[in-house]
């Protein structure tokens, strides 16, 4: 039986379960990631940091969280 309080998203290419109604700030808090060190795409669109609070994730959303690494 499906749990109605849980939604499955794709996070950096892997399935990931979140509570229904989770916004991007809450997702980062759950992952213990500081928002000033990452950028986030949802369904291929870059989300500005000031919109994290209001962007509620939906089932099947594709979320990419990226950071800087050495290279180039």
């Amino acid at each position: 039986m499906n749990n109605l309080n849980v939604a499955k998203i794709q996070l950096n290419g892997d399935p990931y379960e979140i509570d229904t109604g989770t916004n991007l700030n809450e997702l980062l808090n759950k992952l213990k990631i500081q928002k000033n060190k990452v950028a986030i795409e949802v369904n291929g669109e870059i989300v500005e940091k000031n919109k994290y609070q209001n962007l509620i994730l939906n089932k099947d959303d594709k979320v990419e969280i990226v950071q800087f690494i050495g290279g180039g």
């Binding site: 060190k37 990452v38 950071q67 800087f68 690494i69 050495g70 290279g71």
Partner: peptide, 19 residues
């Protein structure tokens, strides 16, 4: 310094960060 952009490793949170 040059920097590249890559996915955060969600599974290994103890990995050091470039920043």
């Amino acid at each position: 310094v040059t920097v590249a952009v890559r996915r955060v490793n969600i599974l290994d949170k103890d990995q050091p960060l470039f920043m």
